[in-house]
Amino acid sequence: MNIKKLFFLPLLFLCSFANAGMPGMQGSQHIGFTVPNVDQAVSFFKDVIGCEYFYSIGPFGPFDDNWMTENLNVHEEAVINVAHLLRCGNGPALEIFEYSSPDQNTQQPKNSDIGGHHIAFYVDDMDEAVEYLQSKGVRVLGEPHTFTDTGMKGLTWVYFLAPWGMQLEIVSYPYGQGYEQNTGRRMWDPRY
């Protein structure tokens, strides 16, 4: 074996790990979350946000074994009463669950809590969207804020709450975001 092969084979091997990722991964397909009342949640996402209902699954459980724990990491007596799947414009589907479980935590996590989360929706006109949400009785948290630096420069955002307290957000960046000035790569954008 010549010296070039001895040098380049380990380098090629290391480079293959530098770009390693889950084989065949194409992107986010859905976001799943649990709500206290699935009918209320589906109505909110359809009638207020504008999502489209597709289908429902369930119930699942209770099972006579540890299937729920082994497969979903929940209490063995947990039951998925129902899950509804919706599409919200050009983005991943929402899988909205209603569970019952003997050890269920009924408190909404805050963004600062481990497991805290939110879903952001892109809107074309921030002021119009905020006014619309308020006209529907939705609690908007504060006023819209616009980033003036960082990779998010040009992005305007504001949080709002679903009727059951889930944190949601609307964002708008009609002229792009700051990071776009420094790279030809682009984060996923629901406008396209």
Rank of each mutant, 00 (worst) to 15 (best):
G178D: 06
M126H: 04
G151D: 06
Y159P: 04
P174T: 07
Y179E: 09
L6C: 15
E143M: 03
V158K: 00
N66G: 12
T106N: 11
Q181G: 11
P92D: 00
Q107W: 10
V171T: 10
G27F: 01
G142L: 05
K136D: 09
V35M: 05
H84L: 04
G184R: 12
S16N: 09
S56C: 09
P174Q: 06
T106R: 11
P10I: 04
D149R: 08
K4Y: 14
V158D: 00
T183F: 00
D125T: 10
R191V: 04
F7L: 12
T146L: 11
Y159K: 07
T146M: 10
E70H: 10
F63C: 07
T69I: 09
I31E: 03
N111F: 11
E95F: 01
Y179H: 06
Q181N: 15
L133Q: 04
K46Y: 10
G32K: 03
Q104Y: 10
F60I: 10
A41R: 02
A83M: 10
E76P: 13
C51Y: 01
E98L: 05
P163A: 04
Q107Y: 10
W188Q: 08
M166R: 11
M22N: 06
S43L: 12
M152E: 07
Q40H: 10
Y122V: 02
N71Q: 13
L168T: 00
P62K: 07
I119D: 04
D124R: 13
L9G: 09
P62E: 07
N111H: 11
S43H: 14
F121L: 00
R87C: 08
L86D: 08
N37D: 12
L94Q: 02
C15Y: 13
D47S: 13
L168K: 00
R191T: 05
F60C: 00
G154R: 03
T150K: 02
L6W: 08
R186S: 05
E180Y: 08
V79L: 02
F8G: 13
S100G: 06
E52M: 10
R185A: 15
F121Y: 05
I96S: 05
G116F: 00
G89E: 02
C51D: 04
Y55I: 11
N19C: 13
D39Q: 12
L12G: 13
F33W: 02
Y175G: 12
Q134W: 03
P144W: 03
L168G: 01
N37V: 08
K5E: 15
N81C: 12
V82P: 02
L12C: 12
M152L: 12
E77G: 13
V79Y: 02
S56A: 13
D127Y: 13
P23H: 05
G178T: 08
T69D: 15
I119A: 00
I49S: 00
P62M: 03
T156R: 06
G21F: 06
D127A: 14
G176R: 05
V130R: 04
S43Y: 10
Q29F: 09
F33H: 03
P163S: 01
A18D: 12
F33A: 03
I119T: 02
M1K: 14
K136I: 01
A18E: 12
G184W: 09
G24F: 03
E169H: 04
I31W: 00
P190E: 01
M25H: 06
G154K: 01
Q108I: 15
Y55V: 10
